[in-house]
């Protein structure tokens, strides 16, 4: 089986008041099936932008200007950005993007994958849920898309099952609750239920524990680990917390200033195999983690 996702030489730029800024500068990474890849880096390192690019959800201009996103649903890898050459054209010394063509590219190649093949869980769980819908209704929206044949009662039943699977204490009560009635941690569990109810192959979790209490963070991370234990799904787990990443991921990439500075298997890192990039070493030191090679 080939790789699920292969991002190659991705470049993302934004026009700012101080001219054009390159926020992602030739980033490459890949994800095997069933694998969890941790993306580690501080704010502004380009980790969120790199993963939003996979979904085609980079807002702002010009955004994605170069690169390949090879995604394999099972019928061989497809480059989601294959038509980027027709969207972005050099003019003078800079790249100019045709917004309409970009929208069409996203609509044609990425949109059909949203929710079904790849989906995302963002930070700020409370704001990621519709304030006017019950949690149950939101999970049911996903259930409806996944299993259109189910009737109303069937959907509700599935939704409650999903709420139980994300370890809600009282799934029935949560089903009829609104986001503002739940804690941040419960909102994030609900988000995960909405995302996973369609059984996507790829889950992108963008700092899903930011803003949650320490104990709740540990619970959410443990939930991710359990939900992914059967290796039927893959995940890009973005965080600035090296402990979370080491706990969840099989491999990690470390990003800084829009570049990947290091790619390493977590097992190797823990075993102290090889030399660490100085930045990775500083992150480990800051978290008070020291992994020595067995003598």
């Amino acid at each position: 089986m080939s790789r699920l996702l292969d991002v190659r030489d991705l470049v993302i730029e934004f026009d700012t008041r101080h001219g054009r800024k390159r926020v992602v500068d030739g980033v490459s990474f890949h994800l095997e099936r069933g694998e969890v890849l941790g993306i580690l880096g501080e704010s502004g390192s380009g980790k969120t932008m790199s993963t939003l690019a996979v979904l085609g959800l980079v807002g702002g201009r010009p955004g994605v200007v170069q690169g390949q996103v090879l995604f394999d649903e099972g019928a061989g890898p497809q480059d989601l950005l294959a038509d980027l050459g027709r969207v972005v054209k050099p003019r003078g010394d800079r790249l100019v993007k045709n917004d309409r063509r970009w929208q069409r590219l996203v609509h044609r190649t990425m949109r059909p994958l949203w929710g079904r093949a790849m989906t995302a869980v963002f930070q700020n769980p409370r704001h990621s849920l519709d304030p006017l819908m019950t949690i149950g209704a939101q999970v049911e929206e996903s259930v409806r898309l996944a299993q259109p044949e189910l009737d109303r009662a069937g959907r509700a039943g599935r939704a409650v099952e999903w709420l139980a699977r994300v370890q809600m204490n009282d799934p029935k009560r949560v089903h009829s609750s609104y986001a503002h009635e739940l804690s941040g941690g419960m909102c994030q569990r609900a988000m995960i239920a909405v995302a996973l109810a369609r059984a996507p192959m790829l889950l992108i979790a963008d700092e899903p524990t930011t803003g949650l209490d320490t104990t709740v963070r540990a619970e959410i991370v443990a939930l991710f680990r359990e939900l992914l234990a059967d290796r039927r799904r893959s995940m890009l787990y973005i965080s600035h917390d090296i402990r979370e990443v080491l706990f969840l991921a099989d491999r990690i990439i470390v990003m800084r200033h829009g570049k990947v500075v290091e790619t390493v298997a977590v097992a190797d890192l823990k075993a102290g195999v090889g030399e660490r990039h100085p930045y990775t070493a500083s992150l480990l030191a800051a978290a008070d983690l020291a992994f020595e090679a067995a003598a």
């Binding site: 979904l55 959800l57 994958l113 949203w114 929710g115 079904r116 989906t119 995302a120 963002f122 700020n124 704001h127 990621s128 849920l129 519709d130 304030p131 929206e141 996903s142 898309l145 988000m191 909405v194 995302a195 369609r198 992108i204």
Partner: peptide, 13 residues
């Protein structure tokens, strides 16, 4: 520009 609308989009609604 609300987060939850972005989330709806990412979930394929």
């Amino acid at each position: 520009s609300e987060d939850y609308i972005l989330a709806h989009v990412a979930h394929g609604f």
